[in-house]
Simulated assay, not measured.
Amino acid sequence: MKNALLALAITGLLLGCKTSPTGRTQLALYSDSDMNSMGVQSFSQLKKQMAINTDTRTNRYVQCIADNIIAVLPQKYASQKWEVVVFDEDSANAFALPGGKIGVHTGLLKVAVNQHQVATVMGHEVGHVIAEHSNERASQSSAIQIGMQAADATLKSTQNQYHGAIMTALGVGTQYGVILPFSRTHESEADEIGLDLMAKAGFDPKESVTLWQNMSAVGSGASPEFLSTHPSPKTRIEDLRKEMPEAMKLHYSALQTGKKPGCTL
């Protein structure tokens, strides 16, 4: 049993390795169609559960920003039909799902005070999609489950008296040693991708720093970064500033080609 599980895990790792847009090796065991179907299904459920904003000006504003971001996506994604929905939700948040789905909370528009800052968040969320982070997280979860089953089978077969304690330790180690760091990696990678996307679309990358300063100002006390699924605002801002010179080159190039978004609320 343990040998079969191990062989399955190794085969999956070998067949599922891909490269993210930033050059990072990642595990992606699921097909695009599988992920798109899950994204569409999840979005459909959210539309049933959450109140949808119908204000014409708000929806036109958000759609304008989305259209400019979508236009500079890799062809595989730019050619998709994207659905953009504004939800009446006070939290300053947005999300994007495989299958061409974008959701924006009205609360975000109170913190992201202009088109450039909204584009920062939207670019970041779409960055998660084009980097296939949902696939990677789902694949990671499957691989961890197989590994835990193999470890459990091995400990049981040897009748190890510390079986329970070891499995508990493995679970904690997996949570803090694998799952959370991967999530922080995804967030940082999405920040980098999103910065490039907004710059290519003609939005001002410098506003990304202001956006996270705004987010930090309205946020309450958070857990230490080590135990967080997101980098701290300070870390995000530092990383964005490191990427800013290249982003500004993309921005100026976009302006020269006539990309000057005029999305207003």
Rank of each mutant, 00 (worst) to 15 (best):
P21T: 11
V129L: 01
E187W: 05
N3P: 05
M1H: 06
K47H: 05
V121F: 10
S33K: 11
A217L: 12
A78M: 11
G12F: 10
M248T: 11
S232Q: 08
L265Y: 09
S253K: 08
K206P: 03
D34V: 15
L155D: 00
V62D: 01
P231W: 04
H124R: 04
E192D: 10
D204E: 07
E83Q: 09
D204I: 03
G99A: 08
Q175N: 14
K76G: 11
K242Q: 06
G103M: 05
A217F: 13
K242A: 06
R60K: 15
E89M: 13
V62R: 03
I179P: 04
A7H: 12
S37D: 13
I179A: 09
E89W: 04
A112K: 03
L97P: 00
R184H: 10
G171I: 09
I65Y: 01
M215G: 08
D34N: 15
G194Q: 03
N36R: 12
Q45M: 06
N53C: 14
D239R: 12
G39C: 07
S31W: 11
Q45I: 15
L240R: 00
P21D: 04
Q145D: 14
I144F: 07
G164L: 08
C17F: 14
L109T: 02
R57F: 05
K260W: 07
V209L: 08
Q161S: 13
V126H: 00
Q41F: 14
V62W: 12
A254R: 02
N114H: 01
T257Q: 14
A153Q: 13
F43A: 13
E136D: 06
L73S: 04
M35Q: 10
M50H: 15
D34M: 12
T264S: 14
V62Y: 09
A4N: 09
Y252S: 15
S141Y: 15
H251M: 10
A199H: 01
A4P: 05
L227H: 11
I144S: 04
K81R: 14
G219K: 12
G262I: 04
G202R: 14
Q80L: 15
D152A: 06
E136S: 13
P261I: 01
Y252V: 09
K48L: 09
L97F: 09
A165T: 10
V129G: 03
A78Q: 11
V118I: 08
V129A: 00
M248W: 02
A217P: 05
P98N: 15
R60G: 15
L5N: 10
Y30I: 05
V111G: 14
N114F: 10
L250F: 02
R241D: 06
P98H: 09
R241P: 01
P74Q: 14
G107N: 15
Q80G: 02
I144D: 07
D88R: 11
T154Y: 04
